[in-house]
Computed example of a mutant assay.
Amino acid sequence: MLKTYTLLLSLFLSVYTFAQTAYPNLREGNYTITHYTFENGQELAALNLHYYTIGTPQKGKDGKIANAVLIMHGTTSSAAAFLSKQFAGELFGPGQLLDASKYFIILPDAIGHGKSSRPGDSLHMHFPNYTYNDMVTAEHELVTKHLGIDHLRLILGTSMGAMHAWVWGYTYPDFMDALLPLACQPAHIAGRNRMMRKMAIDLIKMDPAWNNGEYSTQPVLGLTGALSSFFFMNSSPLQLQQSASTRAAADTLVTHIRRANLAALDANDVIYALEASRFYDPSPYLSKIKATVYAINSADDEINPAELGVMEREIKKVAHGRYILLPITDKTVGHGTNSLPAIWGGYLKELLEVSAKQ
Results as ranks from 00 to 15, higher is better:
Leu7Phe: 12
Leu11Val: 12
Phe12Tyr: 11
Ala19Ile: 02
Glu28Gln: 13
Thr32Arg: 12
His35Gly: 14
Thr37Ser: 14
Thr37His: 13
Asn48Met: 10
Thr53His: 08
Thr53Glu: 09
Gln58Pro: 00
Gly60Pro: 04
Asn67Ala: 03
Ala68Leu: 05
Ser77Ala: 15
Phe82Ser: 06
Lys85Trp: 12
Ala88Gly: 07
Gly95Pro: 08
Ser101Met: 06
Tyr103Lys: 08
Leu107Ala: 02
His113Phe: 10
Ser116Met: 03
Leu123Met: 12
His124Ala: 12
Pro128Lys: 06
Thr131Ile: 11
Thr137Asn: 14
Leu142Thr: 07
Lys145Glu: 11
Asp150Pro: 06
Asp150Asn: 15
Leu152Val: 06
Ile155Ser: 06
Trp166Val: 05
Trp166Ala: 08
Pro173Gly: 05
Ala178Asn: 03
Pro181Ile: 07
His188Ile: 10
Met195Ser: 13
Met199Glu: 14
Asp202Ser: 12
Asp207Pro: 10
Leu223Tyr: 06
Leu223His: 03
Phe230Glu: 10
Asn234Cys: 13
Ser235Gln: 12
Ser235Cys: 14
Ser235Trp: 05
Ser235Asn: 12
Gln239Glu: 11
Ser243Phe: 05
Asp251Ser: 13
Asn261Asp: 05
Ala267Gln: 01
Ile271Phe: 01
Tyr272Ile: 00
Ala276Glu: 01
Ser283Ile: 09
Leu286Met: 07
Asp300His: 04
Asp301Met: 03
Met311His: 01
His320Arg: 14
Tyr323Ser: 13
Gly336Leu: 01
Ser339Leu: 13
Pro341Trp: 01
